[in-house]
Every structure is written in structure tokens, then in C-alpha cells.
């Protein structure tokens, strides 16, 4: 009797866990499944493709696209024509490789990578000193500073978007592609700075002060303490905060859509994906494959820092 109610309880528990996990990851499974299906297979509710289709990935990653789209007559013509040099032949062939224009994945990926990496790097660098200042150094006014950083949590992106757009337009920053790119990078840095300050500040408080004190007694300078003791001791949380800031910038759409509107060559992955969806090239398997490719870097990074991040998020403030 006891064991049977226990068994029932256990299976209800297992079932609830299963439902929660399914709820959380079903859209990801659906994404993967559709990205691997042929068009005739889309309506099939089964998540396992009847026949595996990796064309969408090949197309986006530009693998084996070289000869596929070139009409046979052109190939024949090129072969018969001996007067053309190799270089000229290649140029003609390149004209038929149109898929790069549909969704130049690597270009978007590269743009996103530079933006997210540089903004996260600068944000964390500035935050290390700022967080050390208000978690360790004692002076008047640091409480107010700490609270005003908290205040930034309340401002929605839309409230900042309008004034920042007008300011950068009036200063002529968004009339050139380089200017727009740097402006956007600075904005991402600002958006990630509060969370970096908070998570680092909360961690620095847990480092025993006696370690720093003994270094000071040994003749280490205050900067030396930060450089030789605080940073090495908190390297794992620094990496975590960096990756979190990186993810915020990587995922951002709104600011990018406004600031990079007239610079197609600088578009980030989210912008490219949006354009793919609204263009005539929108085909489900292609969209899903592009979604997978945009999500995978973030998911991999997240898995690397998962434990640290959940600790850091719950210990202090966290901003989206």
C-alpha cells in the first residue's frame, strides 16, 4: 500500500518534470525538426523528418553551392571556350552563386560577433573598476551611485531610443557606416554596464578583505591589489559577466534596426533574420536553419557558464 502510493507520487512528479521540460524546449525541437524537413513534409506533425534535408544549412553556410545553380549550357560554353582565363571563368561562375545574397550568414555572424565582443569587453573592463569602487572603497555618496545604477533598470529601451537617435543624428554619427557601428557598440556597452556593475559588485563583496589587506601591507599598490588579487580571484565571475553581456548584445534587435537601417553591409544576425523572414526568400526550412544558427552560439556559451550565471543572477540584480 505504502509503496504503491509512493510509486504514484513519484510518477506524477516525473510527469510534471517532463511537462515542464517539454514546454520549455518544444519550440527548439520544432525549430530543429523543421530546419531538416523538405517542403512536402512540413504539414506532417511528426517531429522526425520523413527524409533528412540539410540543403537549408548547406545553402546558408555556402557549402557545395558552387556548381549547383549554374545552367548546364553555361558550363558547356565555358568548357568549349578556351580563350577565357581561369580567373574570368571563375567570375562568370560566381555570378550564378546567388545564395550568398539570400542570407549571407557569415557576414551577419561576423558583424554580430565584433559588436557583441567589443561592447561586452569594454563594459566588463569599466565595470571591474566601478564595482570594486562601490563594493570595497569607502567614501561619501557611493550609496547614491549604487542606487542610481539600479534606477537604470527601470528605463525601457524605447525611452532611450528616441533621444539617443536624435543626439547621434545631430552629431552626424549615423551618417557614416563606421560612425553608426561605433555608436551602436557604445549603446550596447551602456545597456550592459549596469548588470556588469551589479554582478561584479556582489561578487567582490564575498572576497575576504584580509587577503587584500595583507597584500597592501606587503607594499602592493591599490591598483596592484585589483590587478593581482581581485581579478585573478574572481576570474570565473568576470568571464560569466562578459558572456552575459555578450549575449545581451548578440540578441539585441531594436537599436540595431534603427541605427543600422541604412547600412545593409553592417547588419547583425537578428536584423538579417528579420529581413529573411519578410523577404520573398522566406521558406520555413531556411528560416528555421537560420534561427538555429543564430541561437546555437548563445546556447553553447550559456551552457559553458550556466552554473556561475544562475548563481550570479540570483545573488544580485540582473538586467535583461
Amino acid at each position: 500500500m505504502v509503496t504503491s502510493t509512493n510509486l504514484l507520487k513519484k510518477s506524477i512528479f516525473a510527469l510534471s518534470i517532463f511537462i515542464v521540460v517539454l514546454f520549455a524546449i518544444f519550440p527548439f525541437i520544432q525549430m530543429l525538426s523543421t530546419s531538416l524537413k523538405y517542403q512536402w513534409d512540413w504539414g506532417n506533425p511528426s517531429l522526425i523528418p520523413s527524409k533528412l534535408n540539410i540543403d537549408a544549412y548547406k545553402e546558408l553556410l555556402n557549402i557545395g553551392q558552387a556548381e549547383k545553380e549554374v545552367p548546364q549550357s553555361v558550363l558547356n560554353l565555358l568548357e568549349e571556350n578556351t580563350e577565357l582565363s581561369k580567373k574570368q571563368k571563375k567570375e562568370i561562375l560566381d555570378k550564378y552563386k546567388s545564395t550568398g545574397d539570400v542570407f549571407p550568414f557569415f557576414k551577419f555572424f561576423f558583424n554580430s560577433l565584433i559588436l557583441a565582443f567589443s561592447s561586452a569587453f569594454i563594459s566588463v573592463l569599466i565595470a571591474i573598476f566601478g564595482a570594486y569602487s562601490f563594493s570595497r572603497v569607502r567614501y561619501k555618496g557611493r550609496g547614491i551611485i549604487q542606487r542610481s545604477v539600479l534606477l537604470v533598470y527601470m528605463f525601457g529601451p524605447i525611452l532611450l531610443l528616441i533621444p539617443l537617435y536624435i543626439l547621434s543624428a545631430k552629431f552626424g554619427l549615423i551618417s557614416t557606416s563606421v560612425g553608426a557601428f561605433i555608436t551602436l557598440m557604445t549603446i550596447y556597452m551602456v545597456l550592459t554596464l549596469p548588470v556588469s556593475l551589479y554582478m561584479l559588485g556582489n561578487y567582490f563583496r564575498t572576497i575576504p578583505y584580509s587577503i587584500e589587506e595583507s597584500a597592501l601591507i606587503e607594499g602592493c599598490s591599490r591598483f596592484g591589489v585589483i590587478w593581482r588579487i581581485v581579478i585573478p580571484l574572481s576570474i570565473s565571475i568576470i568571464v560569466t559577466v562578459f558572456i552575459y553581456a555578450f549575449m545581451i548584445a548578440w540578441n539585441e534587435y531594436l537599436f540595431a534596426s534603427v541605427f543600422l537601417k541604412s547600412f545593409a553591409e553592417l547588419n547583425t544576425l537578428p536584423l538579417g533574420l528579420r529581413q529573411l523572414f519578410v523577404s520573398k526568400n522566406a521558406i520555413w526550412d531556411r528560416i528555421m536553419a537560420a534561427s538555429m544558427l543564430s541561437a546555437i552560439p548563445v546556447i553553447v556559451l550559456f551552457m559553458l557558464i550556466q552554473k556561475q550565471l544562475t548563481g550570479g543572477m540570483t545573488a544580485g540584480g540582473v538586467k535583461e
Partner: peptide, 17 residues
């Protein structure tokens, strides 16, 4: 880790799914 995925994935990558 699995149930945290919705929160960390880019919005743009999951809306189409």
C-alpha cells in the same frame, strides 16, 4: 539547464519557431 533555454535564446531566433 534545459528549462533556462527560453530565457537565454535570442528572441529573433525563437519567434519564427
Amino acid at each position: 539547464s534545459l528549462i533556462l533555454l527560453p530565457y537565454v535564446a535570442p528572441v529573433i531566433a525563437v519567434v519564427y519557431s
